[in-house]
Design a binder for these strands. Structure first.
Length: 416
RNA sequence: GCCGCCAUCGUAUAGUGGUAGUAUCGGGGCCUGUGGAGCCCUGGGCAAGGGUUCGAUUCCCUUUGGCGGCCCCA
């Protein structure tokens, strides 16, 4: 028996890490005043196509329902959240929404890449100002450091800058301009020579490919990028302002013109976040401004910016780093047939909020202690006939191997 | 969707054209009032289907799944 391609089960260990990330995210979303919501898991195929065109069919799950409607499973959260925000015409601006949910993609599965995975996502609608973009980047940095990835780097690009350069200096527009931007996107993955071959074969001139690749290699402090672009006569004012805003937030970022993001609907600021110590996983989060999507949903007045990240990739990046602080766990052991008493004491402890394990296999005391010990319980409450008849239980400290007898009544104090 | 590599107990690994060991894990005992050890017993496997063969876990094909690359992206 094998699972379904690209899907898998979450093990208890993974779920622990998963819940830690979920909680970090929802806590942080609250701190930044994003309201949590979840868009519906399916959309009309038409709605899903709005974002990326009919080509998206190759990458998603879609089907016809029993009523003949063409539906698809959501492949990200942005589409659904945007549809929701656009429908809410009475909402005060900006609309700030957050979501943490699963999405589906019909892709070839590989490491850190599944057909069913979770994303965290925040979006802000109604603000065309850079402050809202800065907040996305700031949030992303905060989330990564909150989950323990201190060595993150957020690479910020600006499609506007790149487009202006391509149009002004190279005279390419439309599809061809987009094609050249794709080349930029690959700069980190392939060598100049490979890209030169690939793109001259597509009909681009050597000169323009070389210039684009030069552009893609620009990475560094905002000021450096500014002076380089100035020579080319391209305005970088927006990037500079954004960088300025971010300096006050303690976010680790770089200006990097090779970041353009694959999706066509992004309009200006785009960014991707990476773990500096983990190259293989790919980007941990990506986002940017996409004013065009709300327009497709009939809202010309709703500029939009957002960021989304893959939870599984984050789990990979976190690795074995301690995820959740475990609470005090207590093992309740018994002997002399005092199961009933042990269960009632367990119940008492649980009402106090303790994590309690009690033997369900009717094992011998020595076996119970062995298991408690091996499973890392620091405290064991032993329920034994002689003591229980005097309203006492034994508390055994597994670390220093000491034990004491305490009154049942004062168990709550003693167990702390 | 395309190309390549791979597939043995839950996990990790040996091995073989005559149906499989080992380690670890699981269950039990020594030991139903005191533990992480030890010893003993025990459960569990050749991904599925087809072909070649007297006989296939082993060779071949297909499917399924995993990994890597393309593409795309998280």
């Amino acid at each position: 028996m094998s699972g379904i391609r690209g899907l898998r089960d979450y093990t208890p260990d993974e779920t622990e890490k998963f819940e830690f990330i979920r909680q970090s995210f929802t806590d942080l979303a609250r701190l930044y005043s994003f309201r949590l919501m979840e868009p519906s898991p399916m959309e009309a195929l038409e709605t899903l196509e709005a974002k990326s065109g009919p080509g998206i069919r190759n990458e998603i799950y879609f089907f016809m329902d029993k009523g003949g409607r063409e539906l698809g499973l959501r492949f990200d959260l942005t589409v659904g959240i945007t549809r929701y925000a656009c429908e809410d015409r009475g909402a005060q601006l900006p609309i700030k929404l957050a979501s943490f949910a699963d999405v589906f993609r019909y892709d070839e599965p590989q490491k850190g890449r599944y057909r069913w995975f979770y994303q965290w996502d925040i979006e802000t609608y109604g603000s065309a100002h850079l402050e809202s973009d800065a907040e996305m980047i700031d949030f992303t940095g905060s989330l990564l450091s909150k989950v323990g990835i201190k060595d993150y780097i957020i690479k910020i690009g600006d499609r506007g800058v790149v487009e202006e350069y391509i149009v002004k200096r190279l005279g390419r527009r439309g599809e061809q301009a987009i094609e050249l931007m794709r080349a930029l996107d690959k700069v980190d993955k392939k060598t100049n020579r490979e890209l030169m071959e690939e793109y001259t074969a597509k009909g681009f001139g050597e000169y323009e490919v070389r210039k684009v690749l030069e552009l893609g290699r620009i990475e560094g402090r905002a000021e450096e990028v500014e002076s380089m672009m100035k020579e080319e006569g391209v305005s970088t004012q927006r990037m500079m302002e954004l960088a300025d805003l971010l300096k006050g937030t303690g976010t680790n970022f770089d200006i990097c013109l090779s970041v353009v993001r694959g999706i066509d609907y992004y309009t200006s600021v785009v960014f991707e976040a990476f773990d500096a110590n983990e190259q293989g996983i790919g980007s941990l989060a990506g986002g940017g401004r996409y004013d065009s999507l709300p327009k497709l949903f009939g809202r010309d007045d709703l500029p939009a910016t957002g960021v989304a990240g893959g939870v599984e990739r984050l789990m990979l990046a976190i690795g074995d780093r301690k995820a959740l602080e475990k609470g005090q766990r207590i093992y309740v052991a018994y002997t002399g047939g005092k199961i009933k008493e042990a269960i009632s004491i367990s119940s008492l402890l649980r009402r106090m909020g303790k994590e309690v394990m009690v033997d369900l296999q009717r094992r011998s005391l020595s076996k119970q202690l062995e298991i408690a010990s091996r499973s890392g319980y620091e405290k064991v409450v032993i329920v034994a006939p002689e003591e229980i008849s005097r309203e006492l239980v034994i508390i055994k400290n597994m670390k220093d191997k000491t034990e004491s007898r305490v009154e049942l009544k004062s168990l709550s104090k003693e167990i702390l």
